[in-house]
Design a protein around this nucleic acid. Structure first.
Length: 995
RNA sequence: GGGCGUUUAGCUCAGUUGGCUAGAGUACUACAUUGACAUUGUAGGGGUCACUGGUUCAAAUCCAGUAACGCCCACCA
């Protein structure tokens, strides 16, 4: 049997993807085994997967494949996220580009239809990419956060929270676009430095004790937005600002609307260093003032704007004026009143709407919230409550982590989670969008109080009987009634609408449905066998920037809805940065397309690189080069190529032009685009090829292979060694996986395969080609390697698994067994500690040191091939060990002769190798230049002396010998005596050279 | 401004509870070449562990401070 000379990644990917699919290996259904479950962080359907996804999903697949091999019933639940604003914005932009139509031109139904079409296309693309990555998801279970089942879960959650009083109607400042008359999400806005002003005015202080006092007292304050003055409900100073101590608690007169407003102290709002140190408070039109009002609710809050950006009736005479016109008018009026103190020009960061490019107004608007703090307070008996729910939803989620029921890896990320939840800020769940779960609330604006009362009575008495489960939130202030019904049915909606209850236009925050993901995907609210079996899931694997938005909310809703945490462990992986230490993003144009990498290096190489850079503490940089599409030369990427500023580059090698690689929005037909590459991926590709060729070699030398038990007692030392190293490695790999130390897993396997198995064991096996024991060991170790490598590099391992299976279907250490039909379902290796033998490992290490020393001397004297004579002076027991390995030392060191023992004669001209356990003399008659060799020896001795003397000095220090642990002191003593011994040998040799 | 990180070889990164002469990969240099693998092999050079103090017999490692960088959150009337 002979394999091709190199591993063909593309061929293997095509072949095994189809094969695995056909065999249905990744299907999981509840059974008697212990489950291992991961729900995928659903990628947004906004576009293609990027390297962050490649990292995230590779790590999940490693965990899933590993656990599957361990015999767990492994389910990786796949799916995608509708991603509200992000998706809607992308589709809207595209429609506008191609058809010059806005969403208002299309209408809600048409836009949503278009987005669904978009979703179908991109979901398919994402699934295809995940498959290309080798992800072993149970694809039959794929879900979407906006599908019917998720909608059901959303509806159930919303209804329950509504009924339990966790959902309430509240006011909140939103970004209002007066031009489009809609609110916009934060990420739909951009901030631009804009010329503005910094005006200083004064208000008159009302002296209540002596109202007739002649001399009026004023207080100055500054603002960038004079027109909001009608909405001022306070002035604010810093509590420790000495200038204003006497004024705190007094009132001033707002002259334009003749309102008396207080002077308050708030250290969070007022900055004594800025302007006059006094600031006006306009809660309805400024986010900071708004939070100030929340801290000081007594000051009140007044909205002065109409939805179109004109001043409303609160502005008195200014009603109807546009806000910018009003600004000038206000300044003029204040000036006329003698209350204007001056203006300086200032550049102000101003928020604009992405869509209309017009300035955003912070605008007070009614929204739906989920209460985070305290019980809902509405559930009377009957309502099912999770344990600890009285303390509030946030508190439940906090305690789940504090009690270690949910564990974070690395642990430090639990701070981010706890800090954020600790603020217990209510969660605004309504969004003024069209793409998402529509809020299941119908609202009636009642005509008068009588109507309002009648409606409430009706609800209580009759309507809820035939509409099904429903609940209401009455709003007496606005004579409004909100109804939430659990299930739409044939008569409920017409009935409601016939009675002038109209459904909310708004949709839910996209995180509301994501928050239910771990159990909505398993069928909740139905009591499915899946929910019972797989929930709580095992591991959540995510990136740190959504610990708050997503992880915290999953824990919270999981406890509320299911009464149980959603996952036991949260693994937070590092971020991938570009070569300059910046996060990769589309707008910067510094992203890398995983499909480029797969194309150039293969999936296994990509996966290896991802695992290898998933270190414990650090984010990882990934410097890339452009691979010239003409000649494949590697052209480094420079920072100025980012933001897609560089449209073309000339290849320094072939002088032809190309476009730099990256996430370009459109294809350029005129100029070929470079693919991007990196040596990080070469490492993985080379490694896959190394394993391929090691297998290739083994398969070529298996003539006459018979399976059989390995008796470790009678094994040759090198066999004993590699078996011991395999057992050690496998057991450590398992440990590292359990702790999510992915990079160390990659390294352990790489080192074992390359530096031990290939570099040494296979080399040693070459002189024993037809030895059945050696064949069994080779096959057995290779078998273990393929299993170990499979979670990281599934394709190459599967290819080799099948190739090996043809020749050696029965194999194993120490007992042979029939190999499984696929590496996917092969048993994860675990070797008994009996196989580990430290003594043998040190014996081989000594041999390796000797061989390396001989090679070094060969190199130093440029002796290519000529066989050498080597004499090793050592103790009798070391001599025995070396004798057992002497054929290998002779062949690996290309020796003519090797003599070991306590009393060997050293030759006159020899290069010396020293070691605590032996001295080796490599006979080099006539080849040594005594002067050069002497110089080298002197240098070596000098270095030894330095260490020797400093260590000796340390030992002479009594505090060291008394305070340091005895084993450390002993180590140092041994070091000194070893060095002394070795220096003696070298000096003797030096003397002989010079004589 | 608050929080969390990072700073070790030209580059990308390891370095467990402080303890042998600080490691790997890559790049570089020299040599090798038909027998598993040039996606290779053998060897070599390359480090004031960001800086300053402190604790300790002993600091890359622990503590404090400084500087630079990154991320998250808040904010600039």
């Amino acid at each position: 049997m002979e394999l091709p000379k190199t591993f063909d990644a593309k061929e293997a990917q095509t072949k095994w993807l189809a094969h695995w699919n056909e065999k249905n290996y990744f299907r999981s259904e509840p059974d008697d085994r212990e489950p291992y479950t991961i729900v995928i962080p659903p990628p947004n359907v906004t576009g293609a997967l990027h390297m962050g996804h490649a990292l995230n999903n590779t790590l999940q697949d490693v965990l899933i494949r590993w656990r599957r091999m361990q015999g767990r019933n492994a389910l990786w639940m796949p799916g995608t996220d509708h991603a509200g604003i992000a998706t809607q914005a992308v589709v809207e932009r595209l429609i506008f580009q191609s058809e010059k139509k806005t969403r208002h031109d299309l209408g809600r139904e048409e836009l949503v239809k278009r987005i669904w079409e978009w979703k179908d296309k991109y979901e398919a693309r994402i699934v295809e990419q995940l498959k290309q990555l080798g992800c072993s998801c149970d694809w039959e279970r794929i879900r979407f956060t906006l599908d019917d089942q998720c909608a059901k879960a959303v509806r159930e959650t919303f209804f329950n929270m509504f009924r339990d009083g966790y959902i309430y109607r509240g006011k909140r400042l939103v970004n209002w676009d007066p031009h489009l008359q809609t609110s916009v999400a934060d990420d739909e806005t951009y901030t631009e430095d804009t010329k503005g002003g910094f005006w200083t005015f004064k208000y008159e202080v009302i002296d209540e004790a002596r109202p007739s006092r002649r001399e009026k007292q004023y207080i100055q304050f500054s603002t960038t937005r004079p027109e909001t003055m009608f909405g001022d409900t306070a002035l604010c100073v810093h509590p420790s600002d000495e200038r204003y101590q006497a004024l705190i608690g007094k009132h001033v007169l707002q002259p334009l609307v003749n309102r008396k407003i207080p002077i308050i102290a708030d250290g969070l709002l007022a900055d004594p260093e800025l302007g006059t140190g006094c600031v006006k408070v306009t809660p309805a039109h400024d986010p900071n003032d708004y939070t100030c009002w929340q801290r000081n609710p007594s000051i009140g809050i007044i909205n002065i704007l109409n939805p179109d950006g004109t001043i409303n009736s609160e502005g008195g005479a200014y009603q109807g004026q546009d806000r910018f016109k009003a600004r000038e008018a206000v300044v003029k009026a204040m000036e006329e009143l003698g209350l204007y103190e001056g203006k300086e020009d200032r550049v102000i960061p101003l928020k604009y709407s992405d869509r209309s490019k017009s300035p955003i107004e912070p605008y007070l608007s009614a929204q739906w919230f989920v209460r985070m703090n305290g019980g809902g307070g509405k559930a009377e008996g009957g309502g099912r409550k999770a344990e600890g729910e009285e303390a509030g939803l946030a508190q439940m989620a906090i305690e789940a982590v504090l009690s270690d029921r949910v564990k974070f890896f690395p642990e430090r990320y639990k701070n981010a989670y706890l800090d954020w939840l600790g603020e217990k800020r209510d969660w605004c769940i309504s969004r003024q969008l069209w793409w998402g779960h529509r809020i299941p609330v119908w609202t009636r604006k009642c005509t008068d109080d009588e109507d309002y009362q009648w409606q409430i009575t009706t609800w209580k008495q009759t309507r809820n009987h035939w509409i099904g489960e429903c609940d209401i939130i009455p709003d007496a202030e606005n004579l409004t009634i909100h109804v939430c019904i659990l299930n739409d049915n044939s008569h409920s909606i017409p009935d409601l609408e016939g009675d002038a209850y109209f459904r909310s236009d708004e949709v839910l925050d996209t995180w509301f449905s994501s928050a239910l993901w771990p159990y909505s995907t398993l069928g909740w609210p139905e009591k499915t066998p899946e929910l019972d079996y797989y929930y709580p899931t095992s591991t959540l694997c995510t990136s740190r920037d959504i610990i708050t938005l997503w992880v915290a909310r999953m824990v919270l809703t999981g406890l509320y809805n299911v009464g149980e945490i959603p996952f036991h462990e949260v693994y937070v992986h590092p971020k991938m940065l570009d070569g300059f230490g910046e996060t990769m993003s589309k707008s910067k144009g510094n992203g890398i397309d995983p499909l480029d990498i797969i194309e150039l290096y293969g999936t296994d190489a990509l996966r290896y690189a991802m695992v290898n850079l998933a270190t414990e503490t650090q984010d990882s940089r990934l410097p890339v080069v452009n691979v010239c599409p003409h000649c494949s030369a590697q052209v480094p990427v420079k920072q100025e190529h980012m933001y897609m500023r560089t449209k073309k580059l000339a290849c320094p090698a072939c002088k032809k032009e190309f476009r730099p690689g990256g996430p370009w929005p459109i294809d350029d037909t005129a100029l070929p685009t470079a693919k991007q590459g990196s040596d990080k991926f070469e490492l993985g590709r080379n490694f896959a090829n190394k394993i391929w060729n090691a297998t290739r070699f083994i398969l070529m030398n298996l003539e006459g292979y018979t399976p059989g038990e390995i008796d470790i007692e009678t094994l040759a030392i090198e066999d004993r060694w590699i078996v011991s190293r395999l057992a050690t490695t496998a057991n450590r790999v398992t440990e590292k996986l359990e702790g999510y130390h992915f990079a160390e897993v990659a390294k352990l396997i790489y080192d074992f395969v390359w530096n031990e198995f290939c570099d040494w064991y296979i080399e040693m096996s070459k002189s024993r080609r037809s030895d059945p024991v050696c064949q069994r060991v080779l096959v057995g170790v290779l078998d273990g390697i393929l299993r170990l490598i499979h979670p990281i590099m599934p394709f190459v391992s599967e290819s080799l698994w099948h190739a090996l299976g043809e020749v050696a279907p029965e194999r194993g250490l120490p007992f042979p067994a029939a190999a499984e039909e696929s590496c996917c379902i092969a048993k994860w290796p675990h070797y008994s500690d009996v196989l580990i033998d430290v003594g043998t490992e040190t014996g081989i290490a000594r041999m390796q040191e000797l061989v390396r020393g001989i090679r070094e001397i060969r190199n130093r004297y440029s002796i290519d091939k000529e066989p050498l004579d080597v004499m090793v002076r050592c103790s009798a027991s070391v001599a025995d060990d070396l004798a057992a390995l002497s054929p290998f030392i002779v062949s690996l060191g290309q020796l003519k002769s090797l003599e070991c023992g306590p009393t060997v004669l050293k030759p006159k001209q020899a290069a010396t190798l020293v070691n605590p356990e032996f001295e080796a003399y490599v006979a080099l008659a006539g080849l040594i230049d005594p002067a050069v060799e002497a110089k080298r020896l002197e240098k070596q001795i000098e270095q030894m002396r330095k260490t020797h003397d400093s260590t000796n000095a340390k030992l002479a220090n009594e505090s060291f010998t008394s305070k340091a642990p005895p084993e450390v002191v002993q180590q140092q003593r041994d070091l000194v005596s070893d060095l002394a011994q070795q220096m003696k040998v070298l000096q003797a040799n030096l003397a002989e050279l010079l004589s």
